[in-house]
Design a protein around this nucleic acid. Structure first.
Lengths: 146, 146
DNA sequence: CAGCTTTTTTGGATTGTTCAAAACAACGGT
DNA sequence: ACCGTTGTTTTGAACAATCCAAAAAAGCTG
């Protein structure tokens, strides 16, 4: 089996975005599939074992190229490193645990951006509304009680 | 006129938060009054001329102390340095120009946090909903047309 | 498979922010 | 008005996340 055969979807996505298919890019894509809100370091840690010799810089390159090509979305909850996710078409939001940092997707109630209207847009041409919910995740609530 | 007399509100606010009143803290507070969405560097640049010898570190100290005391709120639009503002009691939001970075406050339609409910909170104990609107400000729209 | 172009590697630079120790200053009590 | 305690500032260094640039390597098109 060739490398290409083992990850058909990643290959298709990458090639379809007009990017060359390389082992690291495929691995980066797969890493995001497994960990939907991963930092560059997270991705790197996941990629290195399967594609030895990959550099952190390459992971950044791949992630930035993916973002540029619209394959990946980058989010950045306050006080955290940038996180990357494959869900890109829908305008969804996130809920972040202010205790442990866990992140979950939250579907947007309204289908498309901007899913929300500002009370006063100050003349801005509005494009998207980014919503981040902050709270405490179930695991951390339990810990606090215990 | 004493130093204290010249900035009565800042003094009151700082002392009321249980913090000692110093020249740099007063200047930091005043800087935020004049520039409502300033970075630490911005504040520093504004403070130095009036309180020479102030260090950037002191500005960070003051800002962090203020945030800790609830006098100041820190926001962090994706891809930007942290910004500080005095409006802290109301749960308001922001609209950011994706071209020039200009920021305006947007009043929250609902009075208090969380002003928005996630479609599925995944069991999280929800605390606040942080909304960032992205768009293009009037000045940048005009430039684009010209 | 040959060559052009993109990607990766390597090494360094940069920005924003924090840490820690020593010098200093605010302020409540005498 | 001064003093001592305790909080604050300074200084200098460290840090994390990210980007830049040149040379080496690899993907893809004909």
């Amino acid at each position: 089996m060739t490398i290409a055969d083992s990850h058909p979807e990643a290959e298709t996505a990458i090639r379809g975005a007009g990017l060359r298919v390389t082992e690291s890019r495929r691995a980066v894509y797969e890493a995001l599939r497994e960990h939907p809100h991963a930092s560059a370091e997270d991705v790197f840690a996941q990629v290195v074992p399967t594609v030895p010799g990959t550099s952190l810089q390459s992971v950044y390159n791949a992630l930035n190229d993916f973002v540029g090509a619209g394959l990946v979305r980058r989010i950045e909850p306050a006080g955290r490193a940038g996180l990357f996710e494959l869900r890109v078409a829908d305008n969804h939001h996130h809920i972040v645990c202010r205790s442990c940092g866990a992140i979950e997707d939250v579907d947007c109630v309204h289908g498309e951006a901007p899913c929300l209207q500002p009370s006063d847009a100050h003349g801005f041409a509005l494009e998207v509304a980014e919503v981040t919910f902050w709270g405490v995740c179930p695991a951390c609530s339990t810990d606090a009680v215990a």
